[in-house]
Simulated scan of single mutants.
Amino acid sequence: MSVLILAFLSCLFVTLLIVRSAHLHKRFTADSDLLGVQKFHSVAVPRVGGVGIILGTLVALTARYFQNSEIATFGLLLLFCALPAFLSGLTEDITKKVGIKIRLLATIFSAGLAGFFLNAWLGSLQIFGIDNLMLTYPIVAIAITCFAVGGVANAFNIIDGYHGLSAMVAVMILAGITYVAFQVGDHAIMIAALAMIGALAGFLVWNYPRGLIFLGDGGAYLVGFWIAELSVLLTVRHPEVSKWFPLLLCFYPIFETLFTIYRRVIVKRTHPGMPDSSHLHQLIYMRIVRWAIGGHDVRLKTQQNAMTSPYLWVLALLTVIPAILFWRYHMVLKGFAVLFAISYVWLYWSIVRFKVPRWLSVRR
Rank of each mutant, 00 (worst) to 15 (best):
Y65A: 15
W121T: 09
M190F: 06
F259Q: 10
F354M: 08
H163W: 06
N68Y: 13
T270F: 04
W291D: 08
M1N: 10
L215V: 00
G49H: 09
F340G: 12
D186S: 11
G151A: 06
G123R: 14
G52P: 03
K39H: 14
I342Q: 06
H271R: 06
A7H: 06
N68R: 11
S124F: 11
R20Y: 07
N154V: 11
W121S: 12
K97M: 10
A167W: 00
L318A: 03
G164N: 03
A82D: 07
T235F: 08
R358F: 01
L78P: 06
L248F: 11
A111N: 12
R358W: 12
I342N: 01
F8N: 03
M331I: 09
A193T: 09
K243P: 07
V171E: 13
C11K: 01
D33G: 02
R264Y: 14
G218Y: 04
V223L: 05
M196A: 13
Q183C: 13
A192R: 00
A120I: 08
L318R: 03
L87R: 03
V43Q: 03
F109W: 13
L55V: 15
W313P: 04
Q38W: 01
I213F: 00
A111S: 13
I139H: 14
L61C: 03
W313C: 10
K39G: 08
G218H: 04
L333W: 09
K355D: 13
Y348L: 07
T178P: 04
I130F: 14
H279N: 06
Q303H: 11
F116M: 10
L105C: 14
V241Q: 05
L104F: 13
V332M: 02
L16G: 05
